[in-house]
Design a protein around this nucleic acid. Structure first.
Lengths: 208, 208
DNA sequence: GACCAAACAAACCGGGAGGTAGGTATTTTC
DNA sequence: GAAAATACCTACCTCCCGGTTTGTTTGGTC
């Protein structure tokens, strides 16, 4: 790990540059030359900090996902927390190149590493925990399986963000997420409790 | 275009091999060496048929999508047609490497070409046409916008197939598709008409 | 069977990829 | 201030990439 402050700065600069290039080119398509040009450093500097291109990608992902996604249940875990979480993720994808790159690296198959189920499973777990609380409270139909809902939500969100990127460079992603909830909420929430939830999110979340 | 039958065979062999390698490595990750080894031909043969790696990928996609996805409305266009179509697509992705490769080439960003919205838009149109029929017939709530539903379905299906691939190598994709419909149908279909539709599909479709 | 076109195979090309080794600059320690 | 540690920079390395050129084989026509 870096010991001097200038090294911390260089390392961060390299990670930011790598994020930008990985976001736009993917792992295989990103060349070290492009990353170096973006960072304004040389290959010696990069290899001082990371022992390979692969470790660079791995560190980028590991650092990002050690602090993200942001789960903030405001002391009341449940369904609105999941809704707000999806919106925070949407905003993060819009605003933060490290998040975009990390998601891309994790999703892409046959590059970087075969996509690890780990991230998916972790997101599903986070989601399911909140849904379990919601179900205990009667906010979700008791006959539904929270793990299945979580699985569907994570999958659907993945597809939403990919197609949003293709079609509108993610400009419409928050709308798409709200739209997803408008379809899904009536299916999973008992009718009399439906009005408790805000498909557009409660805007209390920060992208992190 | 090929004039001799042996050339037709060689061309098809190259396309099949390319599909396999593109499916597993993506466009940038697929090397011509790998494709040639898979096909058992030489580079001269490949360049006789295709003027570049990019044209190879483009032809693969164009040929596949000229005959797919399979829309079979059995003379009665509507919602069950869309349900069956998603199941046909799921089976196609499970069984046909050219479909898998074509989907991957079309979805991946920054490779091959920037992902064209065209395929997404075409799938959305196919879907929306059927949903329009369904809505005229009263099978879909009249306050909903069929274009939005179609957009959501295409996005969600994209995410389902990607995560299914990561988590189970697509073994569970038909189940995931059926699960999607079980969440979505109650949200878009008037309650008294819900029992008309089969989330698992009516198995009348062939992958094509 | 001779000739030509079509369909390949084999050899070659230049460039760029990721990574390595040697050198230089900056900071820290004593 | 000298020496050592840290943090880079520069030049080099091998290999593999997509594509090009030359050579050989196969099929079709007369």
């Amino acid at each position: 790990m870096p010991k001097q402050e200038r090294a911390e700065r260089t390392r961060a600069t390299i990670l930011d540059a790598a994020a930008k290039v990985f976001d736009s080119q993917g792992f295989v398509g990103a060349s070290l030359s492009d990353i170096l040009a973006e960072a304004g450093v040389t290959k010696g500097a990069l290899y001082f900090h990371f022992k390979s291109k692969e470790e660079l990608a791995h560190e980028l992902v590991a650092e990002q996902f050690s602090i993200w996604p942001p789960v903030d249940d405001n002391g009341k875990p449940g369904l609105q927390t999941v809704i707000d979480l999806t919106h925070a993720m949407a905003r993060g994808l819009q605003e933060n190149v490290r998040i975009r790159a990390s998601i891309r690296l994790v999703i892409e198959q046959g590059t970087f590493t075969d996509p690890s189920p780990d991230s998916y499973l972790r997101w599903i777990d986070v989601c399911r925990d909140q849904l379990d609380h919601a179900q205990e409270r009667g906010d979700i139909r008791k006959e539904l399986v929270t793990g299945d809902i979580a699985n569907f939500l994570v999958s659907a969100f993945t597809g939403l963000q990919i197609s949003s990127q293709v079609l509108t460079d993610r400009a419409d992603l928050p709308d798409r997420v709200a739209g997803m909830w408008r379809y899904v909420l009536p299916a999973i929430v008992p009718p009399r409790r439906l009005s408790r939830f805000v498909p557009e999110g409660t805007a209390a979340q920060t992208p992190g």
